[in-house]
Design a protein around this nucleic acid. Structure first.
Lengths: 216, 216
DNA sequence: TAGATTGTTAATCGATTAACAATC
DNA sequence: TAGATTGTTAATCGATTAACAATC
């Protein structure tokens, strides 16, 4: 087992990895065979050495001088590294428009996310299926989560209910939360909260536009 | 004008700012008057000195020894800093479930985002209003964007159409793109692309769960 | 006043970039 | 072989943390 001597994971590298993943898939689709770190760096506006280091950290076979990295292999390596190969079961709480959008998007399986069911408080949306996923009433959360061995709870309820829902999910044995509500959730240490933080995106956008405007 | 000597913006500080913003709004709602950097750091699991520095970078009046920062003032300072006070006009391209979810969410005005219209290719969704925002056919993009002085284009179409839509938006004079499609977009240098990168979130989640699983 | 809390200057840490040797 | 391209070791840069003086 040489695996153990792999470099420790850098947060920044982890953040860049999905960009490499999307980039390589596009290339693969266009039937390229291999690609150099320099070409990737150029297309993604990154530093060449940074790309080399990032790829070296995840690549199983490494790149070949003169040729670069084999695209197919690299895609597989990144998938393995990011854990996209490990399937995690999830439920969505909140079957409003956003919840339905996520329920109907079938691309998450690509990332190992397997959404099995949804929950809602609204009697007009429960007890029916959306994209073959059944919408249960809220009180079923503990039962279904335990039954289906759910790892991830996805929160798409209005901000005011998010903490309440979060507590219920935690009590039902989930281990991570993907939070779309614009609130900060309180959770026990062992639970990971990943905020799909649209406020951050908007901050970066508006900051950027404001700065550009000033320059003129 | 002493404004000019403000410290240059750190990317990390910018990323943390929305968390402070949400945190402070919650406090404000609970009718607190002021708060110390230490208390914030404790609640958000951040380093105290880091919080002091972050707040010092955006605070107009600074904190007061013994009392800390005035919450209301600080919220206003952060809003000003992040550009949430500057209103940016936006359109959504893709009025499917995700697009509709964004159209129906009225909380974006809090961040200075003003969604004025939507576009779609589907004849069954166009020529009607969703949450008082009209859905136009795709060919109206240039006309409407110029007419309404649109700064930001929000892309919520399937991955396969995202680049096409992006090109149209760029040609229609928008200055920034908020991209929800899981693809990397090619744009001219002057256009900012902000990816709402669910793949990153999923990577962090699945990586984290995989690592935890290994530990056991 | 004493003490809590800020803001700033200095020290440490980690990530990026540069330089260069290794290799197909 | 020569040259393109990788991987690694060293240098730089920026961000975090520590130390401490300033102040209400």
């Amino acid at each position: 087992m040489k695996e153990q001597k792999k470099a420790p994971i850098s947060k920044q590298t982890l953040n860049r990895m999905p960009a490499y993943f999307l980039y390589l898939k596009k290339l693969d689709f266009q039937e390229h065979q291999s690609i150099s770190a320099a070409a990737i760096a150029n297309d993604l506006n990154l530093n060449e050495i940074q790309v080399r280091k990032d790829l070296a950290a995840v690549s199983s076979s490494g790149g070949k001088p003169h040729k670069g990295f084999d695209i197919c292999t690299l895609i597989e390596d990144i998938k393995a590294y990011l854990g996209y190969d490990d399937v995690n079961n999830a439920v969505i709480v909140g079957a409003g428009k956003l919840g339905q959008a996520l329920l109907c998007y079938d691309g998450f399986s690509e990332y190992g996310l397997n959404i099995l069911a949804a929950f809602d408080a609204d009697p007009t949306v429960i007890h029916r299926s959306i994209n073959s996923k059944y919408v249960y009433p809220m009180e079923k959360i503990p039962e279904i989560c335990h039954l289906l061995n759910i790892q991830i709870g996805i929160i798409t309820v209005p901000a005011a209910y998010a903490q309440l829902v979060c507590d219920q999910l935690v009590d039902s044995g989930i281990r991570a939360i993907w939070n779309f509500a614009p609130v900060l959730l309180n959770v026990p240490q062992k639970i990971l909260v990943q905020n799909e933080n649209m406020a951050v995106s908007l901050a970066i956008l508006s900051k950027h536009l404001a700065v550009k405007l000033q320059e003129k």
